[in-house]
Amino acid sequence: SLEGTEKASWLGEQPQFWSKTQVLDWISYQVEKNKYDASAIDFSRCDMDGATLCNCALEELRLVFGPLGDQLHAQLRDLTSS
């Protein structure tokens, strides 16, 4: 749920159509929501749009996002199937 936050830029759009900015917004949101240590994320490797993100295998997401990769992968699957 997104109570208390302004409507996120990526909400209501299919992930494969996200811009690079929307991807970063979504990642930041997941980091906050999961109380994850953002210093463990290599943000220089997050410079990708939604289509690229959706094409990432779980292993790739783990490389870039560490333990949060599993969470991101699961969330993406939910978003693309809805």
Rank of each mutant, 00 (worst) to 15 (best):
V64W: 08
E60D: 04
Q14S: 14
N55S: 09
N34Y: 02
D25E: 13
H73Q: 08
N55H: 03
Q16I: 14
W26Q: 01
G12T: 15
Y36E: 15
C56Y: 08
N34P: 01
A57I: 01
L79V: 09
L61W: 06
T52M: 05
W26E: 00
E32P: 02
L68S: 04
P67M: 09
E3H: 05
K20L: 04
E6T: 11
Q22G: 02
S1Y: 06
T21R: 11
L24A: 13
Y36W: 13
S44M: 10
D70T: 12
C56F: 02
D70G: 07
W18C: 00
K35L: 12
T80H: 15
A51G: 12
H73W: 06
S81R: 11
Q16G: 12
W18P: 00
S1C: 05
Q75L: 07
G4E: 12
G12I: 09
L72V: 13
F65S: 01
L11T: 08
Q14Y: 10
S44T: 11
S28E: 13
E13G: 09
E32T: 08
R45T: 09
L58I: 07
S44F: 05
L11E: 14
V23E: 01
S19F: 01
L72R: 00
D70H: 05
R45G: 09
G12Q: 04
S39H: 02
F43A: 09
F65A: 05
Q22L: 03
L63C: 12
D42G: 03
R77A: 13
G50M: 01
A8R: 14
L61H: 02
S44G: 11
S28H: 12
S81Q: 08
I27W: 01
R62M: 07
C54Q: 05
T5A: 03
L63E: 09
N55W: 03
L61Q: 01
Y36A: 11
S19P: 00
S1V: 07
R45M: 12
N34L: 07
P15G: 00
M48I: 08
H73L: 07
K35Q: 12
F43T: 06
D37L: 05
A74Y: 08
N34R: 08
D49N: 05
K20A: 13
V64C: 09
Q14T: 05
W18D: 00
E32K: 08
A40W: 11
P67D: 13
D25C: 07
A38I: 15
L79E: 11
S82H: 15
L63V: 11
S82N: 15
S44V: 06
Q16F: 05
R62V: 09
S19V: 04
R45N: 05
Q30P: 01
C56A: 13
C54E: 03
I27Q: 00
R45F: 08
V31C: 08
G4S: 08
A74T: 14
L68F: 13
C46I: 14
D47E: 05
E59R: 09
V64I: 07
G66K: 01
H73T: 02
Q22E: 11
T21W: 06
F43N: 15
D42Q: 11
A57H: 04
L58P: 13
H73A: 07
W18R: 00
L79N: 06
K35M: 04
P67L: 07
T52F: 03
L58N: 06
D49E: 10
Q22Y: 01
R62Q: 15
S82D: 01
E59H: 15
A57S: 14
S28I: 08
F65R: 00
C46G: 10
K35A: 09
D42S: 06
D47M: 05
N55P: 00
W26R: 01
Q14H: 04
W26P: 01
Y36H: 08
Q22C: 04
V31A: 05
K33H: 10
R62A: 06
L72C: 02
Y36D: 07
S82Y: 15
L79D: 07
D42E: 14
P15T: 02
G66C: 01
T52A: 12
A74C: 06
E59K: 04
L58K: 09
S19M: 02
V23T: 11
E60H: 09
D42K: 04
S1P: 04
L72F: 05
A74W: 12
G4M: 07
E6Q: 13
W18V: 00
T80N: 15
C46D: 02
T5S: 14
L2G: 09
H73E: 06
E6M: 13
A51Q: 15
E3Y: 04
D78P: 04
S39T: 08
P67N: 02
A38Q: 06
R45K: 11
S1T: 14
L76F: 03
A8Q: 08
Y36R: 08
G50L: 00
F43W: 04
E6C: 09
S9G: 07
G66S: 00
Q30W: 03
N34V: 08
G50P: 00
W10G: 08
S28G: 13
D49H: 02
K35T: 10
L61R: 01
C46H: 05
K20G: 03
D47P: 06
F43G: 06
F17R: 12
S28P: 00
T80E: 14
A40D: 12
D37F: 04
M48A: 02
R62G: 04
S44K: 12
V64R: 12
K33D: 07
S81V: 13
D42I: 04
V23S: 03
Q75Y: 12
W18E: 00
N55E: 15
D49S: 08
E13N: 05
D25W: 02
L72K: 01
M48G: 00
Q71W: 07
L79H: 05
A51D: 10
E60K: 07
E60S: 05
S9E: 09
S44Q: 11
R77D: 03
T52I: 02
Q14P: 08
A51V: 11
A40K: 10
G66L: 00
F65Q: 00
S44E: 14
D47S: 13
E59Y: 07
R77M: 14
S82A: 12
P67S: 11
A38D: 06
S39D: 09
C46T: 09
W10Y: 04
A8V: 07
L76S: 00
Q22S: 05
A74V: 08
C46K: 05
E6K: 07
R62I: 02
D37E: 10
Y29R: 06
H73Y: 07
L2K: 01
F65C: 07
A40N: 06
S28T: 08
P15Q: 01
Y29M: 07
A38S: 11
G50S: 00
G66W: 02
G66P: 02
S81N: 15
L53S: 00
L63P: 03
A74I: 01
G66T: 00
I27Y: 02
D70S: 08
W18G: 00
T21M: 04
Q14G: 11
D37R: 08
A57T: 12
Y29A: 10
N34M: 14
S39A: 10
K20M: 05
D78C: 03
L53A: 01
R62T: 04
S1F: 05
T52Q: 06
D78T: 13
L24P: 00
L68Y: 10
W18L: 00
E32L: 08
T21F: 14
L63Y: 15
F17T: 07
D70R: 04
S44C: 05
L72P: 00
R77Y: 01
V31N: 05
E32F: 02
S81E: 05
R45E: 10
F65V: 09
H73I: 02
S44A: 09
G66Q: 00
V64S: 13
E59F: 04
C56G: 04
S19N: 11
W26T: 00
G69A: 09
D78W: 09
V31D: 01
M48Y: 10
K20V: 06
P67W: 08
D37K: 04
L76A: 01
E59N: 03
M48R: 01
Q75T: 15
D47A: 08
R45H: 15
E59Q: 07
I27A: 03
A8D: 06
G50A: 01
C56E: 04
Y29N: 15
W10Q: 03
F17A: 12
S28A: 11
G69D: 00
D49P: 02
S28R: 13
Q22F: 01
D37C: 13
V31W: 01
Q75S: 12
W26Y: 04
D37Q: 08
D42Y: 03
